[in-house]
Computed example of a mutant assay.
Amino acid sequence: MAAQKKPLRVGLLYENAQMTDLAGVDILGNISTKNVELIVTMMPEFASYVPLSVPMEFLWISSSTDPASMTSSMLIKPTHTYSDAPRDLDIIMIAGPDPRAVHPESLQFLKEAAKQTKWILTTCTGGMWLAASGVLDGRKATTNRTLLKSSKEVFPKVEWLDQRWVIEKGEFEGAEIWTAGGAGCGIDMIAEFARKNFDNKLVEVALYGLDFHPEGPHGQFYTGPLPTF
């Protein structure tokens, strides 16, 4: 009997953040063993994808165990708090809140977790949330394009780039920090992240299942200047 794979642990920081910034988590969810096995119950022809799938555990992290809100009055019950969440996660995903109002305990969590977590993925002002912890000091990053100017003023130790997403080395060998612009950029970034780190055939099926096609103008770089609002 083949050894069971150890579940990949994905921690999500979402308190008072933009709901769509975490939409890309469904790309990971679609390649999870639980989801692939569910698909097979409806479409047995997909059984060959089960061995390619990835067992995953999703940890929803907030300042307390009370339901935490996202935009559009969405409430999500946390599984962990910043104080008791494990620091040695495989992936941390950070949605975009008002960066002026993040919980202080979240910053301590990020400082500690960045030293042990292989991949950190931020979308929109999630990049500013991570910057507030000091983890991005001396690194390249991006955030929502409309806030790049203020990000440079508030976090001058970070090299802010006008890109749809930026990939940087993390705190230890093999670790990476991926930062994205707004929610659409974050979805495209996570699709690219999945292609880079998981079975490509499985990822393409997962994207197809979401009817998501990140070709064309959805690449890493913007195709024109920032529009005037």
Rank of each mutant, 00 (worst) to 15 (best):
L12A: 11
A95I: 08
V158M: 05
E159I: 01
I39A: 14
N200F: 04
E45Q: 13
V50Q: 11
L52I: 04
D162G: 07
W160E: 05
A132E: 12
T65V: 14
T228G: 11
K169F: 06
L136I: 03
F198Y: 09
L22G: 02
I167G: 05
T146K: 14
L13I: 15
G224H: 15
L38S: 13
V10S: 07
S73C: 13
H80Y: 04
L148Q: 03
C185E: 00
T79N: 06
K169H: 11
L59C: 10
D90V: 10
D26T: 08
L75M: 10
T81G: 00
A101V: 11
M70A: 14
S72W: 07
E159A: 08
S64L: 08
L202F: 05
A206K: 06
K140Y: 10
F221S: 15
S72V: 14
T125H: 02
E173D: 11
S72K: 01
K201E: 13
G219W: 03
R139N: 04
F193T: 05
T146I: 11
L8I: 14
M93I: 14
S69R: 09
D162E: 13
E112I: 06
M19N: 11
T71L: 05
S73R: 15
K196I: 11
F221W: 14
K115V: 15
I61G: 00
Q220N: 12
P225Q: 15
I91P: 02
